[in-house]
Design a protein around this nucleic acid. Sequence first.
DNA 1: CGGGGATTGGACCTGCGGGTCCAGTCCGTG
DNA 2: CACGGACTGGACCCGCAGGTCCAATCCCCG
Lengths: 200, 200
Amino acid sequence: MTAKGAATRERIVAGAAARIREHGVAATTLDDIRERTATSKSQLFHYFPGGREELLLAVARFEADRVLADQQPQLGALTSWEAWEGWREKVLARYRAQGRACPLGGLLTQVGRATPGAQAVVAELMARWEAELAAGVVAMQRGGFVDPGLDAAREAAALLAGLQGGVLMLMTTGRLTYLQAALDVGLERLRRAGGERPVP
Amino acid sequence: MTAKGAATRERIVAGAAARIREHGVAATTLDDIRERTATSKSQLFHYFPGGREELLLAVARFEADRVLADQQPQLGALTSWEAWEGWREKVLARYRAQGRACPLGGLLTQVGRATPGAQAVVAELMARWEAELAAGVVAMQRGGFVDPGLDAAREAAALLAGLQGGVLMLMTTGRLTYLQAALDVGLERLRRAGGERPVP
DNA sequence: CGGGGATTGGACCTGCGGGTCCAGTCCGTG
DNA sequence: CACGGACTGGACCCGCAGGTCCAATCCCCG
């Protein structure tokens, strides 16, 4: 593939992503994407031989990268309470701005979660996310800011679950309070000194 | 509508729900439902003049009721740690059995979250769910089992968010650990005596 | 035992949207 | 400058699934 071709492909993905963010997956046809990206049907199938599904998967990857990128640089260096607070703000800001629409979620349900490709995209996103959080907890433990008795992996899992649920509740109720409560309760838990071991 | 008609309508909803639970929304056509419920096209449109969308909405209501029903009787009387533990088990059992498929979620994304009808269904489900949890927290505070300084509404919100996120992570990763971590961390938080006020 | 609304059957229509195809154009390379 | 592969344009195909329609049948009610 030449540079020109790569650029066209990129334009298609970005344009499709934008269109989907605005109108949702279900209400986006190949013709819509074709029109928006100033391309033709043959180009769509030239760059995505697998058709609609392959294109949507590429868009999903694109969106997944955005999710993590929007949380940087804090997410990559959760080594102080300031970083954690900054991260919390970034997350809230992102989802406040996004509102009820969830581009990635819709995308993946459309492709079909059973699809190995979809699985891979979301699994990788979540794994990276969880790993960053776990690394942050460990860093804080090393620095003596968090009780070393806590299971960092478990804390990261619970925090990520709360976050995801908060986003989902934002989607369904339109209110940000759940996400806020989940993040605050999670951080409060880390902050609290001298926590015991988890219940059995 | 006569009793016979009501029965037919009910048969359609239940049959559609079963079909959708097995094959997913996207892979379920009106003809599939027609065949499964031993009805005809005209009956479908007779009982659901709004067509597919109205039918799916009815199925969503059906499924939403099941969600809460599956957590009873514990959810309705979270007045002791035994009840809370039993509730936790019920939730884990339900979603362990359900696995990655989320009938209600798929249903609602299919109908379109923007639809007022879909909004209403999910909003009511979440409100009832949250209210039950909040009532449980208050009951435990009254009984002296939980620190009365905690904001019951906030705790319920965080707990529900964690639960939802755990379910979502189960869907995407196939692992139950997130749901488990979220529930356990949440319960542990309630159990812990003498909690301070939440961080500002 | 009629009348009429509720209920049912199933053939038919139709638009949408994913996918195919071929011919024409661009552009780097020998 | 040819030549060939990458790239582009757009007309066309076609199956599917939601939706319409009318006639037949049932069964409650007076």
